[in-house]
Amino acid sequence: MMTNLFSVFDPTSSIMNLSMNWISTFIGLIMIPTIFWFMPSRYNIIWMNIMMTLHKEFKTLLGPTGHPGSTFIFISLFSMIMFNNFMGLFPYVFTSTSHLVLTLTLALPLWMSFMIYGWVNHTQHMFAHLVPQGTPAMLMPFMVCIETISNVIRPGTLAVRLAANMIAGHLLLTLLGNTGPSLSSYLISFLLITQIALLILESAVAIIQSYVFAVLSTLYSSEVN
């Protein structure tokens, strides 16, 4: 029985008191069709085209100062988040990306590594970022405080944005799904249409949020070079 609305996100699967929920983070590999691994297959060609498009875009965002091959870190990040987002759309599958434990684990080390690299190797450049160009002398102390706060909360905003978007859609699907038993057969058809439309919307959100997470991580990386 559901004790409250958010209990749908509670970890519940266990074997001998060992939580099995986080296995869903890696179960996406099992869902990939076998034919994908043939070279070249249609699935493989489509996925490689997506990867090459992302590679070109991330390379543009990183600029000429970006290290060769660094785009593949963000492509891997995009792939992992997108797989986990889609896995959460299946019934009775634990949605790992709706938990801050996972999203903060991804966002915090990335942001921390960018900060350490920037302050150690480009200290003057990092100080220059604290005061935007053309700021009056009177406002400089305030701008330093504002820029510092906006920089510090970046991993939090990355993590909360992803988790909140995953939670919001799932809660809406759960709320509508729970009204099903009390509806008449006439209204059930409208409920099914609404649920299918929401599921399509959630599929789009799953892709968009993984893309947003990867792009913002790339932008934060480009600022420290």
Rank of each mutant, 00 (worst) to 15 (best):
M112V: 11
A107F: 01
H125I: 12
M112L: 15
L110M: 12
A137R: 13
P109K: 04
S96D: 06
V144R: 13
A128G: 03
S150C: 12
F114P: 11
L130H: 07
T97Q: 03
F127D: 05
P132C: 03
M143P: 04
A107I: 04
M138A: 15
Y117F: 14
W111G: 08
E147G: 08
T105M: 05
L100Q: 01
G118Q: 08
L139Y: 13
A137E: 14
V131M: 02
F142A: 11
L130T: 10
M115P: 03
L106K: 01
G118S: 08
F142Q: 05
S96A: 12
V131D: 03
L106G: 00
P136A: 03
M115F: 11
S96K: 01
T123C: 04
P109Q: 03
T148S: 12
S113P: 01
T95D: 14
S113W: 02
W111V: 11
V101E: 13
H129R: 10
H129M: 08
T95I: 09
T123M: 06
L104R: 13
Y117Q: 15
Y117G: 14
C145D: 03
A137C: 06
T123I: 08
A128V: 02
M126G: 01
Y92C: 07
C145I: 13
P132Y: 01
Y92W: 08
F94R: 03
Y117M: 14
L130M: 15
N151Y: 10
T97F: 00
N151C: 10
M138E: 15
E147C: 14
T135P: 00
V93Q: 10
G118I: 11
M138W: 15
Q133E: 15
A137K: 14
S150K: 14
F114I: 13
Y92H: 11
V120C: 11
L102W: 05
L106F: 02
L108C: 07
A137Q: 13
G118N: 08
V144F: 09
T135A: 00
L108E: 05
L108A: 12
F142P: 01
A128R: 07
S98K: 05
L108Q: 04
Y92Q: 13
F114H: 15
S113K: 06
M143H: 05
L100M: 03
F127R: 07
T135V: 01
L102F: 09
M143S: 06
P91M: 05
V93M: 10
L106E: 00
P136M: 04
F142I: 13
Y117S: 15
L104T: 11
Y117P: 10
V144I: 15
L108M: 11
V120T: 14
A128I: 04
T148K: 05
V152F: 13
M115R: 14
H122L: 08
H122T: 09
G118T: 09
T95K: 08
L130K: 09
P91D: 06
P136K: 05
I116W: 06
S150M: 14
T105H: 02
F114Y: 14
V131S: 05
T135E: 00
I146T: 06
M112K: 12
F114K: 12
N151P: 03
T103V: 01
H99S: 09
S150L: 15
M115D: 11
F142S: 07
C145S: 06
H99V: 06
Q133I: 12
G118V: 10
A107C: 02
V144M: 13
M126T: 02
S150N: 15
M115V: 12
F114R: 14
L106S: 00
I116A: 11
I116Y: 06
M140A: 09
